[in-house]
Every structure is written in C-alpha cells, then in structure tokens.
Nucleic acid binder design. Structure first.
Lengths: 290, 290
DNA sequence: ATAATTTTGAAAAATTAATATCAGCAAGAT
DNA sequence: ATCTTGCTGATATTAATTTTTCAAAATTAT
C-alpha cells in the first residue's frame, strides 16, 4: 500500500507519466468524478473509461496496491477522513492554497463576473446576434483593439472554418480605412472595445454605421461609446484583483457564440471542417496521436 | 429504486421506525460514517455493525432497493452529485433561458472545467512559474500555435508593460528558427500547445530545451508531448458542448499569472506603466472619459 | 405459560467480480 | 523493411461477494 499522506488523486497525477495510453485514459476517467467512479466495481470503471478490464487491474497494481479491492479500501478511507474533517468544505478552488492565494481570489472574481454578466443577457438577443453572424450572404467584419484584437483573432480563426466572407480588421493598424471601401449596407461588424476605449475603433464604427452596416458590440460594464451605434451590445463584467481587467468572461461569450453559430450553419461547417482536416493531414502540421 | 430526490441518509432516518432491532443497529452504523461505510462490501458492513450478513441484505431490500449493489450504486450517484456541486446552486446562469439553452450549457461546462483544473494545480508550482517569468535578467520567449497564438499574444502584450526582453514567437510562422539563435541557457519559454498538438511547437521546444532553456507549458488535460521537456506544466480541462475546445480556463490561468507577476515586479511595472500612460496621452489613441 | 409469529444468523448456493494467461497488435529500434 | 519490445484486450480461471434457505432464538399474543 502506497504512502498514506498522499491522496490517490495526488498519486495518480504524480505518476501520470509512468502510465501507458490506455492507463492514462483510465486515470483521467477516475479523476473525472473523483472519488465516486473508483468506488464502483472494476468492470463498471473499465467500461466507463473505455478500456479493458485487465488494464484497470494492471494500473492499480502499478500504483502500488495489491489489487483493486485494496485500492477501493484506500479510497474509502480517504473519503471517511475527508467527511470527518470540516476543512474539506471545498470553499477554495485549489485545494492546497489558502483562500487568500491569488489563484483563489482571481478565480472567485471571474466566476462572479460570469454570474453577473450572464444574468443580464437576454437569451433572445444572444440568439439574434448568432443569427446575424451566421448570415453567409453578408460580409462579416471582426474588429479588435490594442488588447482585444486577440479575442477578435480568436473569433476570426473559428469563423474561417464556419463561413466565408470574413475580414479581421485591427483598428490599431492604420490600414483599416481601406477595408471600409467595400462595406455594403447590411454587412455585419463584430466590434470589441473595452476600457481605454479606442478612438480608432469609434471612428471605424461610425463609418461602418454610416454605410448602413449592422454592429454587434462586445464591451465592458461601462460600455464603449460604440454602443450607441450598435444593434446589439454585450457588456461583460471585467473586474479582477489585478492592475488590469479580465477578458475571460468576454471570451466565454465568444466561445459560446462560436458553438451556437456553428450549429446554425452545421451543414456548411461540416464540409469545411472536413476539407480543413484533409489539408492539415497533407501538411503534417499536427500530430494525430499523443 | 426509491425516490430520487431523497438521499439515502434521509431515507434511512425516515424509515427508522419500520426497522427491527438489528436493522436499526445497522442503520446507525451506516450513518456513523456516511457514506464511506456503505460503499464497502456487504460482509464488512455487517461485521462493522455487529449484525449478520442477511440482515444487511434484508434491510436494503426493505428500503426499496433490489439488492445491495443497487443500494451502493445509488450512494455513488449521490456522492458524484455532491462533489459536482461545490459552488452554484444556480440551476441556470441566465435567468430567462431554459437550462438547455447553449448559454447555460456552455457556462456550466466552463465552470466545471475551471473547478477541475484549479483542483489539480499546486499553488507552489504556480508561484514558481510566476517567479520564473518575473526574472528580468533572463530573456522571456512566448510561443503559441495556430489557435493559441492569441493567448500567447495576450500574455505578451501584458508582459511588455511589466518587463523587457520578451519575444513572441509564432510557431506557425517559418521564421521561428531565427529567434532561437540567441537563446541562452536559463532563458524562459512559455509555450502554449493544446489538442491538435503542433509538430512545429514540439520541434521548437526540443531546440530550446537543448540550448538549456527552461520551459513553462500551458496545455490541455491530455498534455502535449512538450510536457516531457517542460519544467512546469499546467493542464487545463477544455471540454465544452461544441465542435471545438475552450481555452477559457487557460486564459484564466494566464490572467492570474499576469496579475501575480505584476505584483512581483511592482516597482518596475509601476514606472513602466506610467511611461506608457504618458505615451498614450501623447498619441491620443485612447479616450480618457466615456 | 404456551403457541404463533417474527426476527436473526449460520451455512450453502448462486451470482458476480477480480485476476491470470495468452495471443494479437502497434510503436519504436535496428 | 524486419525485428523486438511492450501494450492491449478476449477468454478462462479463481476468488469474492451476495442471495437464499432453513433452523434456532426472541418476541408477542392468547
């Protein structure tokens, strides 16, 4: 039986490198709902993790237990100790750290931001925005600023797979006026503008608006002046214990939107994805396994 | 199988009067350290409570279960649900939407990812990584891939304010080998590599490692092969209801790290920020109000 | 006080689960 | 390209756990 001071969860993570592919797959499955899944029968665990029964038996022995029953006994001991111990109330995010550690404080703040932000979003409005972005017969412009161009780029990269006719404009570059030449009435702009609102971005929005484009704005709780021109605005809370703001909540919205738009355009997206996969295969840019 | 809304603990207490002497004795033993004792073999439980084996079998049937295994399965389900729900009783994040709306499902998944990820991070390791990044006498290289270069860029933009001697390398560009010429022993690499691990990134990491550089890796739960070369790795859970993965959790770590490094280098950072402010003022890039 | 009824536990039977064996397969080495 | 090594899972074997049976003990009713 392995060291008592270490939890099985720790032990598994620590020895993750010594494990084989199937064993690692199993390990992740155990950690997925820890410790419940490890307390069931070996057979069920194997099925759950999509590995064979012997793989489970081998792994627990590799971890230092005499057999699966001993492994389970240890898990139960751990559980017993945890319930007895009032500190295990799981009010902190990362187990070992004091609640005052920056990891816990920052995460608290972000979760709080998410709660506030989501609470103020009308699902119908969100769906409308997704539908607008999914209109493949209009050109889609994605605009970011000094920091937010990273979000814009992230959205752009995914939209590239989902649809054609997209342009990523960096408002910080001075080349952007050229892009506006071709804007048609009804085209869609997704604009990111958060605190330290940028003059360039506002100008760009004004010109786009004047040309009859529709604007979807991602901003913060104090709202960029662009919001007066925008058809739809999403305001994320961005306050965290830091000298800077957090765009984590905004990213959450962007990712959700990607997922939603992808579903709206699924037939298109699917074939585009397959084509992309094939090109990746040919260029050998990515590794297929491990 | 009995009512799902009731925990087994509740069920036992509620039906305590219908039980016989030996059964009551057993019931109290189960509640004594709940739920751990109920998750072991029937034989052990019987011995623990000083009752006979058939007594246990009879009682669980009396409580409405088909047999002891079903009783245990229910206990495990209960445990799973309990662990899963450490924070939010929030059944929905955005009020108006049904819990099946993508906004709610996606947010649930991200929160769950955060919980899993943070639960596996050693605060000391995190602090070590921050300290490494804060070493201003070493050169800092930040490396991102096809999608993750957006995160790399985000980190880079903030680090620019905090310290000098930073380079953002895009592993997708073929110019990266040039950057490696100047790498010195002890230099620090922050590398982002998530699913669809990139061959270029691995090559780059190998060369950096060979030159004696130290590597901090941000990857996903399955871990990029780069992790074998890395001094410190952070694995984020990235699964969401989407055809793509989520980097929201990784961004959370990056932002936390920025905040932490900023504090370590505060005197430096402060003067650099002031200088930056002044330059912004002169260029009129940003609006001071509204 | 005695019979009827219920409860209890020992032991056997049935079921289920865990381990060991082995052959096929895949990844890396020569 | 071929070999070697080590991983993986199907199957068989062994071990364990659970359920059933039945007789003894305790409890309750008459």
């Amino acid at each position: 039986m392995p060291d008592a001071a270490l939890t099985i969860s720790d032990l598994i993570q620590q020895r993750l490198d010594d494990l084989t592919r199937a064993e690692r797959q199993l390990a992740h499955s155990i950690l997925e709902n820890y410790p419940a899944s490890g307390l069931g029968p070996l057979t069920a665990l194997a099925k759950d993790a999509n590995v064979s029964v012997p793989t489970v038996a081998r792994m627990v022995q590799k971890l230092g237990f005499k057999g699966y029953p001993e492994f389970q006994a240890e898990l139960r001991e751990e559980l017993k100790a945890k319930v007895k111990n009032p500190i295990a109330k799981h009010d902190t995010w990362t187990g070992g750290a004091p609640s005052g550690h920056i990891l816990n404080r920052f995460t608290d703040a972000v979760i709080d931001n998410i709660r506030h932000t989501l609470g103020q979003i009308e699902p119908a409005t969100f769906d409308d925005a997704c539908a607008m972005i999914a209109e493949t017969d209009r050109h889609l412009y994605i605009v970011g600023g000094r920091l937010t161009h990273t979000l814009a780029e992230y959205l752009f990269l995914h939209m590239q797979v989902i649809r054609s006719q997209i342009t990523h404009i960096q408002s910080t570059s001075n080349a952007w006026p050229h892009y506006l030449l071709d804007v048609k009435e009804g085209d869609v702009f997704v604009i990111f503008d958060v605190r330290r609102y940028e003059n360039n971005t506002l100008k760009l929005a004004e010109m786009a608006h004047a040309k009859g484009a529709r604007i979807i704005l991602f901003t913060d709780q104090w709202r960029s002046p662009v919001h007066q021109l925008a058809q739809i605005s999403f305001s994320s809370r961005i306050v965290v214990p830091s000298a800077w703001d957090s765009v984590a909540t905004t990213l959450l919205l962007v990712e959700t939107m990607i997922s939603s738009v992808q579903n709206l355009n699924w037939s298109d997206t699917k074939s585009r994805m397959e084509e992309l996969e094939e090109m990746f295969d040919q260029t050998k840019l990515f590794r297929k396994f491990t």
